[in-house]
Every structure is written in structure tokens, then in C-alpha cells.
Simulated assay, not measured.
Amino acid sequence: MALAQEDIAFIKQHLGEWLAEQSLGKPPAVYEIELRERMVRVEED
């Protein structure tokens, strides 16, 4: 499934907010690693 450029921009704009909602109880280092992993997966798609 190919994403339009506007979809990618929307995801990048909201990704941090979404991850923060899911990772409130985790230490910042764990959160940072998860964020990077998810960003890589989004970019690979």
C-alpha cells in the first residue's frame, strides 16, 4: 500500500503525540527507541 505524500506528512506530524499516549509509563530512553523504530517502519512502507 503506497501512501500519498500528504498522508506521510500527517503521520509525521502526529506520530510523537500518538506514541506519547501509548508510552506514558515508560522511561524516556525506551520511548525514544520505540519512536525511532516506528519511524523507520513508516518510512520503509
Rank of each mutant, 00 (worst) to 15 (best):
I33E: 12
Q22E: 00
P27H: 04
A2M: 01
Q5R: 12
D7Q: 14
A2K: 02
E6L: 12
V30Q: 12
A9C: 01
E37T: 08
G16R: 01
L3I: 05
R36W: 00
Q5K: 10
V42M: 01
V42S: 00
E21W: 06
R41M: 14
P28R: 07
E6W: 15
H14Y: 10
Y31S: 09
E21G: 13
I33A: 10
Q22L: 14
M1D: 04
E21K: 05
L3E: 11
M1I: 05
E21P: 01
Q22T: 04
K26D: 13
I8K: 12
I33G: 01
E34K: 10
A20Q: 12
E44M: 13
A4Y: 11
M1C: 04
L35N: 08
A9K: 09
V40F: 03
R38C: 09
K12L: 02
Q22M: 13
I11F: 02
E32A: 15
Q5V: 12
K12Y: 13
R41T: 08
S23I: 09
H14S: 02
K26R: 14
D7P: 01
L24A: 15
G25V: 07
L35C: 09
R41C: 07
K12T: 01
D7A: 08
E44A: 15
Q13K: 13
G16Y: 00
H14I: 09
V30M: 06
Y31P: 02
A2F: 09
A29P: 04
V40C: 03
L24I: 05
V40N: 07
Y31V: 13
A4N: 08
S23Y: 04
Q13F: 03
P28C: 03
D45Y: 11
L15T: 13
G25H: 05
R38E: 03
Q22N: 01
V40M: 08
R41I: 12
A9V: 13
D45N: 04
A29Y: 05
A2P: 14
E37I: 10
S23W: 12
E6G: 11
I11Y: 06
E21Q: 12
A29C: 01
S23T: 15
P27D: 09
E21A: 11
P27A: 15
E32L: 09
R38V: 15
A9L: 07
W18F: 07
A2V: 06
L15Y: 03
A2T: 14
L3Y: 07
H14G: 06
L3P: 02
L15S: 04
A2R: 10
A29D: 15
I11N: 06
I33T: 11
I8W: 00
E44Y: 05
R38Q: 05
A20P: 02
E32G: 00
M39Q: 11
E44K: 13
K26F: 10
P28T: 10
M1N: 00
K26C: 07
